[in-house]
Design a protein around this nucleic acid. Structure first.
Length: 701
DNA sequence: CAGTGAGCGAGCTTCCGCTTGACTT
């Protein structure tokens, strides 16, 4: 009697093998074993000529999908067939989520087993959980399989009808999709906000005070009872104070006059306020939060984070790294609590074991949260790891241990200080009990917010006290445009909208960079001219598809299909073939969209037109009577293109190069040029005995 | 590499989500 058990991951297979009796053979499918054909080369000759074959879904025959076994999966399928040949029973133990259910179904379709079949599910890899799961098998859930198939087909329909439209209207090789196009749109919209942003400036005063030799700082907040304007009072679109705000805007002059006047005044404590609060530790890591923290704290990209986590997983240091669940097993909670007690003492334990519940949209929770593996956690020092692996393990270990630690208790102190008619405020923070702060403080994209976690000590003060003023400075401030997305903040936004899955967050960023939709500059994602053109087309002609809520609505229908409340075929028919369906839309828009217009980008604050050409973006401007075209260097993005930059590029095109200096020895002029690959310097050397001067090129970084 | 941006038309590009190695740089 022998049983073949199929799981998705080989590492999982190795572990489970130890928990099953003799006669059980455990093998891995390595994810999906069948898929729609990806490119023309994958389409079988039998259907190659058909119109629908290009998208791999027969849209005229009830959306019948054309499944093939990809080249890199043929070995796996062969191995599984051989293993099945000598088995008397097949157990499908793929993950318990939509994709996992589908993998089981595809395995049945491909392997065509003649032996009894069982579907086994588990969420923890412990001997107990595995034994329990094998004793409580079910069958493959066809409804869930249909939900996955619907998702797969819908994504194919969107991607493989919109992308060709972009090739025709904008540029070769572009792509659109339910997930990537929303991500690109987020980047573009943020950049548009930044372009439309108008800086506001204001001044205030900072007092350096002291009491009993303890220094502290206070900021001017009011004058004669009127609040002083700060950054939040400005309208981002105008750079002016929002109309109707009863605030006093200080300019440089007013600030300096006030500074001089207050310098000689006595300073008196007018009011004291204390407010205490508690903070709970963050939930244990999911893929998304791990990528965010690793990007913020370790400066690792999503891809590097996943590569490192995969290695830790394969070596048995952590649990599975692609998960949307914040659930910790009983075993994990016990291990974390033991760590807390050993390292920080019992007073740092949370009174009750703390369990988190998922709040992200569409979480499928087939796995545990990401945590140190095993029933006792190895401390980072005990692992013998080094480099990135050590740092990432340490991050995971600390975050997990912190979940079972006591809340932190802190007191915020606010002190009002009066100097003549000017009101100042000093704020302090006292940590009364560090609790989980001892192990872990969550990082932030905003450096100011990170500072907020520090303790700020104020001297002991009472109302009526008169601290000394050591210095009084007038300080200029400027409002800041909204920050660009980083990998961390993009992943966070996508996850909160339910867009993308743990296995895809890292590759979404890879895709939009590969397609030339964004560049990574100083850890920020900066959208390109192409991204602007593509987003403008999609927003104008396919607004529902680039609505961030599209995925959430789709997910709701998929959930209904999973439970049998909704039918998959009518949903797809309405989406694709209906009167307002995608197919009709694309065909209609195709005749309406003018390619030249689609390749032209409107940028806030720019008169010149930007066009996407075959070799990159270029400026097209009318200079009197003739039309001037000037290439935009590849590393320049819409973010860099202000009117001055446009003028520079156009002038260099029409008037020739700028002279930047002379060669120190020969005295020859050196020119600053801007080519499609960026700025470079050109030096003219006239050689004797050669009638025509030669152009010598030198590259400069 | 230091220019280009039209139009002709062959065949091609492309999606999202599940999982590792086998490749090259």
């Amino acid at each position: 009697m022998s049983t073949l058990v199929i799981v998705e991951s080989p590492t999982k297979a190795k572990t489970i093998r130890n928990y099953l009796p003799q006669g059980y053979q455990v093998e891995a499918s390595m994810g999906h074993i069948r898929d729609l054909p990806q490119s023309a080369g994958d389409i079988p000759a039998s259907v190659k000529g058909q119109e629908w074959a290009k998208i791999g879904v027969n849209v005229e025959a009830d959306f019948e999908p054309l499944y093939i076994i990809p080249q890199d999966k043929k070995k796996v399928v062969k191995m599984l067939k051989e293993a099945l040949a000598s088995a008397d029973e097949l157990v499908l133990a793929t993950d318990e989520d939509r994709e996992g259910e589908s993998i089981s179904w595809h395995l049945l379709q491909v392997l065509k087993p003649k032996v009894p079949i069982k579907r086994m599910v588990f969420h923890e890899i412990t001997e107990e959980a595995i034994q329990l799961a094998i004793a409580n098998c079910r069958t493959v859930d066809e409804h869930v399989v249909r939900a996955q198939e619907t998702r797969r087909i819908l994504d194919r329909l969107v991607g493989y009808t919109l992308s060709p439209l972009l090739w025709k209207k904008i540029a070769w090789g572009l792509s659109a999709g339910r997930v990537q196009s929303v991500a690109v749109r987020l980047l573009v919209n943020k950049e548009q906000q930044r372009r439309a942003f108008r800086r506001g400036s204001y001044w205030d005063l900072k007092a350096s005070l002291s009491k009993d030799q303890v220094p502290f700082e206070a900021k001017l907040v009011s004058l004669g009872g009127t609040r002083i304007a700060n950054g939040g009072d400005f309208d981002e679109a105008t750079g002016q104070v929002i109309a109707g705000r009863e605030v006093l805007l200080l300019g440089e002059q007013e600030a300096l006059v006030l500074q001089a006047r207050l310098q000689t005044q006595p300073w008196t404590v007018a009011n004291l306020e204390e407010r205490s609060s508690t903070r709970k530790p963050s939930a244990p890591f999911t893929t998304s939060t791990l990528q965010q923290e690793s990007n913020r704290k370790l400066r690792l990209s999503a891809r590097d984070t996943m590569r490192t986590a995969q290695s830790l997983y394969e070596q048995g240091y952590i649990t599975y790294m692609r998960t949307d669940s914040v659930n910790l097993s009983q075993q994990a909670i016990a291990a974390a609590r033991e760590c807390v007690e050993n390292m920080y003492g019992a007073s740092y334990l949370s009174p009750q074991p703390r369990q988190y519940s998922s709040k992200s949209k569409g979480a499928q929770e087939a796995h545990e949260a990401i945590r140190p593996a095993g029933s006792t956690f190895r401390t980072p020092q005990e692992t013998g790891l080094s480099g990135r692996e050590l740092k990432l393990y340490e991050l995971i270990w600390k975050r997990t241990v912190a979940t079972q630690m006591a809340e932190a208790r802190q007191t915020h102190v606010t002190i009002q200080i009066q100097a003549d008619d000017a009101g100042f405020r000093a704020t302090g923070k006292r940590i009364d009990f560090a609790g989980f702060f001892r192990a872990y403080v969550e990082g932030s994209d905003d450096p100011d917010a990170a500072i907020e976690d520090q303790e700020v000590v104020l001297p002991t003060l009472r109302v009526g006290d008169t601290p000394n003023c050591e210095a009084l400075e007038a300080i200029a401030h400027e409002t800041q445009p909204p920050a660009r997305y980083t990998e961390a903040s993009l992943v966070k936004t996508l996850e909160s909208e339910g867009i993308g899955r743990p296995s895809t967050y890292a590759s979404i960023i890879g895709t939009i960079i590969d397609r030339g939709y964004a560049q990574m500059t100083n850890n920020s994602l900066v959208p390109t001219f192409t991204a602007f053109a593509v987003t403008a087309l999609l927003e104008k002609h396919f607004p529902e598809l680039v609505d961030p809520r599209f995925t959430a609505r789709m997910e709701q229908t998929l959930d209904e299909i999973s439970t049998g409340e909704a039918q998959w075929l009518p949903y797809l028919k309405k989406f694709y073939s209906g009167e307002q369906g995608l197919d009709t839309q694309v065909k209609q828009q195709e005749s309406l969209i003018d390619p030249t217009e689609a390749r032209t980008i409107e940028l806030e604050g720019l008169e010149a037109k930007i066009r996407i050409g075959r070799y990159g973006a270029y400026i097209e401007a009318s200079n009197g009577e003739e039309i001037v075209k000037a290439s935009i260097p590849q590393d320049l993005t819409p973010a860099d293109l202000d009117p001055a930059q446009v003028q520079l590029l156009l002038r260099q095109k029409t008037e020739g190069p700028d002279k930047v200096g002379f060669h120190p020895e020969t005295g020859e002029p050196i020119y600053q040029m801007i080519g499609p690959y960026g700025p470079y310097v050109q030096l003219v050397i006239k050689l004797k005995k050669i009638p025509n001067p030669k152009w010598h090129l030198c590259r400069r970084e």
